[in-house]
Design a protein around this nucleic acid. Structure first.
Lengths: 330, 330
DNA sequence: TTGTAGGCGTTATCAG
DNA sequence: CTGATAACGCCTACAA
């Protein structure tokens, strides 16, 4: 299959390549007759415009970069789907990068993004150094962050107010006099975890107590399970709040195996409302976060920034809410 | 930030742009002195070569396309991670497409791939029409399929022999006289399901029985749960084999809720050894499939094809094995 | 070892 | 409405 160019089409249709280009982009008016002639030639020759050359000529690519954490959490792929679906609607390709935030690695990614002249970048709540962000800014590449509220020129974000929702949930428990609360996190996504912690502490402060139930566990199921089992065996608790559903389920199973009754003797809440939370026994109460939408919104934001359209809401807050299932009372 | 080109560098370093190009690609020899002068100019100017222009000039891109099913199964993101990691090692970017196999959508994707002159495509066991594959072949774009064993020029694959492993598992049960077996699938990924079915039927045939326990359920947890609960209430069964872990867990929970004892009264096995299978109670026995590796191998295969290196194993079989946990006896 | 010039496939600016 | 012709940023013979 020899490559056919716009030039071949022009020859076949007996016009100049300029005209062919015109009908391809219906840029300026072309007479119906020649237009059809060109169209026919294109069809006959099976011509497909070379996006790379177009990119060069127009000095813009049609790709956005998507940087996600390496981990294969269910939440991540949901967001990715949102991004990809919407990006494709607006005719952008998405180039996937994954990272575990190694400084070196991030640099390499940034460099690659710049080399390829991608017009925009979406970053999933990873712990990118602001250094990396600055670099993108220097090259005028718009960024939207999903997960955290980051302000700045050429920056937009879509996020949930983890502090607020967490505060509300915890406050509710404290009001009922349940103050033996532990917060579990997998030492991952520190930005978000930090917000959650602030919410918790704020609630505690209002009743003039100090919160000191922060528990960091290893990320794998087996590890977190045994650490939590150990913790449960040695501590009296009203509520375990876990930064991800899967961690919450580790706690759930550990409790069950210790014959602690849920929710009667211990309540458990996770975050994200992933498939896990439905599948556990008892079904897990969880703080629902609209992940797919967040991805979709991020993609929409970036496309608008690329077209220099104004983004009404540069920092788009999305609502989270507690879903009561069977691991909590009430 | 004005864009700096190879030309600016040349001027600054007092050489021709050809020389600059040479040091960028260390193509042909350049004297140490000028090389360093150029390098310094590059650093001073903060020059980053434009990959788009390079692509045009060299007539090759540095991206491969990755087509995955829309569903956000845990198994999929594991494979994606494998692909991305290895692709980046060999300096390829991966462009992500997701599809639910709508004919129209697939055409659009193929067209996009051709337009962008990607040099290779990896397809995750989706049900792409051979039509689409033919189109890629026409343009000389190598494809590697992960999931199914597809032969052909410019094609490689990495797959597990679902028929064989399924056959072995089922045969084992039949040997013990347990022949009330049901196979659950979510009407998804028919290629693979078909292979599993063949394995089952083969085992049944050897004991001169016919298999008619194929159960198609809806894909969501809630739906499959209630359908299976209903089925369990009305059928006596020895084993439920589910084409995915999450489906198996639907069955597990349904059985538990009917107070059917697992594994004593009913055994359950899933596929993929995903996180789900560890987290269920009792822990799910499952057929382990090396997902990350499959992604990694696929990426390696495609990069070799792109360099016209021979691929020793064009169709790479990867081993699956049954992991006994607590949803099976023994 | 280095420079010149043509080419990669399109778009875009002018005239006509 | 249509056709030259110059970019776009870089690579690569071919010469020097």
């Amino acid at each position: 299959m020899k490559k056919v160019t716009i030039y071949d089409v022009a020859k076949k249709a007996n016009v100049s390549l300029a005209t062919v280009s015109r009908v391809i982009n219906d840029s300026s008016a072309v007479s119906l007759a020649t237009r059809e002639r060109v169209l026919k030639a294109i069809a006959d020759l099976n011509f497909v415009p070379n996006a790379v050359a177009q990119g060069l000529a127009m000095n813009k690519s049609t790709s956005i970069a998507l940087i996600v954490p390496e981990a294969s959490f269910s939440s991540i792929s949901t967001i990715i789907n949102g991004v990809v679906d919407v990006a494709h609607i607006y005719n952008y390709n998405v180039v996937l990068y994954s990272t575990n935030a190694g400084e070196f690695e991030v640099d390499k990614i940034m460099n690659n993004i710049i080399k390829n002249r991608f017009n925009g970048v979406i970053i999933l709540n990873s712990e990118l150094t602001s250094n990396a962000l600055d670099q993108l800014a220097k090259y005028g590449i718009p960024v939207t962050i999903v997960g955290t509220n980051i302000k700045g020129k050429l920056r937009s974000s879509v996020f949930v107010d983890y502090e607020k929702i967490t505060y509300q949930v915890i406050k509710d428990y404290l009001k009922q006099g349940k103050d033996k609360i532990f917060f579990i996190d997998g030492d991952y996504n520190r930005f978000i975890v930090e917000e959650m912690l602030i919410g918790i502490k704020k609630a505690y402060k209002e009743i003039n107590k100090e919160f000191n139930g922060h528990l960091i566990v290893e990320d794998s199921y087996e590890k977190s399970y045994s650490e939590l089992k150990n913790h449960l065996a040695n501590n009296q608790a009203d509520l375990y709040l876990a930064s991800r559903d899967s961690l919450a389920i580790s706690a759930l199973n550990a409790a069950l195996d210790l014959e602690i009754k849920i929710p009667e003797e211990l309540e458990i809440i996770g975050y994200n409302n992933t498939k896990y939370s439905l599948m556990s026994r008892p079904a897990l109460s969880t703080i629902n976060v609209p992940l797919y939408e967040m991805g979709a919104i991020a993609a929409r934001q970036i496309t608008k920034m690329l077209n220099k359209q104004e983004i009404e809401i540069k920092n788009h807050e999305v609502k989270a809410n507690l879903i009561h299932r069977s691991s909590t009372k009430e």
